[in-house]
Amino acid sequence: MWFYIARRVNLFVFTVAVLFLLVFVMLNALPGELATNLSGIQNPTMAQYDAIVNQYQLDKSWFNQYISFIKQRIHGDFGVSFSDAKPIYDEMLRLLPATIELCIYAMTIALLLGLPLGIIAAVYYKKFGDFFLLGTSLIGYSIPVFWLGVIAIMYFGLDLQWLPVAGKLNLLYQVEQVTGFTLIDIYLSDIQYKQLAYQDAIAHLIMPTLTLAVIPAAVVIRITRTTMLEELNANYIKAAQARGQHPLSVIFHHALPNAIQPVLSQITLQLSTLLTSAMVTEVIFSWPGIGQWLIQATYQQNYTIISAGVLVCAGFVIVVTVISDILLIATTPRRRSAEYGSV
């Protein structure tokens, strides 16, 4: 098992190195001065230029440049924004939690809905429930996020006026950002109307979260159904049935524990899709997260922000994948054995 973890970590390091290389090449290929693209400083003075050359070793070989680029980024220096010269790192720290918050809630809802429904679909294989859930999940999977978001805004936000259509929290509530997660920040703050602030924050969360949760929920239903079907036809399930065990016990004590690990590992693979739809959702609901920021940066050709966004989003996906991979190994007795480590 340690061998396996070492391999994973190894793979992680290489993937990240390749990621940096791609971004580095991209910054080289983009129009404009390399010094500007790397640091974000427009029209640097002589002294600034010398500092950048020194920082990124621009007078040395490209390999040295690449290595020092990695060093700068790992130490949290992502340069400054093209448009307002603010340090990108601080901006990201402010925005990333909002995105992660949205993704976590959406994923939780997707799992809470998708897992039980997927199990039901598998248990009622080829019966009405199965067809119904498959059809519903297909529809859910095919609906474009932006369309769904706009329809939700029109109906629940404008027509019925039930829910706020934009933002994270009403400006009335002066909540200081500590963690970046609204609900936690409200808890930590010392404002007067905490109860109302919670209500407001949740009202703001409902539409973006549900919009974002639709596709992952559909995916979870389908993955769970397929995996459960496979497990339910396995020999050990037949054997348990032949021993006269109760069907609920067969499903929840044997089939589900075996199905849950492949399900979770496949869902991690959907993380990049989730991030993409999160960006779209953020734009539609004016959610102050990293996606909205990135898309604005794309319009402005703000190369430092774009490159930082690519690094952080891709890095996030890679880290989560590696961690979930290792967790999967650690929790599956079969895979913990040595021979699996060499795969």
Partner: peptide, 16 residues
């Protein structure tokens, strides 16, 4: 009625 299955190792839950 009880049955002993042909493929023993796959007749036991691998996760338990």
């Amino acid at each position: 009625i009880a049955m002993v299955f042909q493929e023993p190792s796959s007749s036991l839950d691998p996760n338990d």
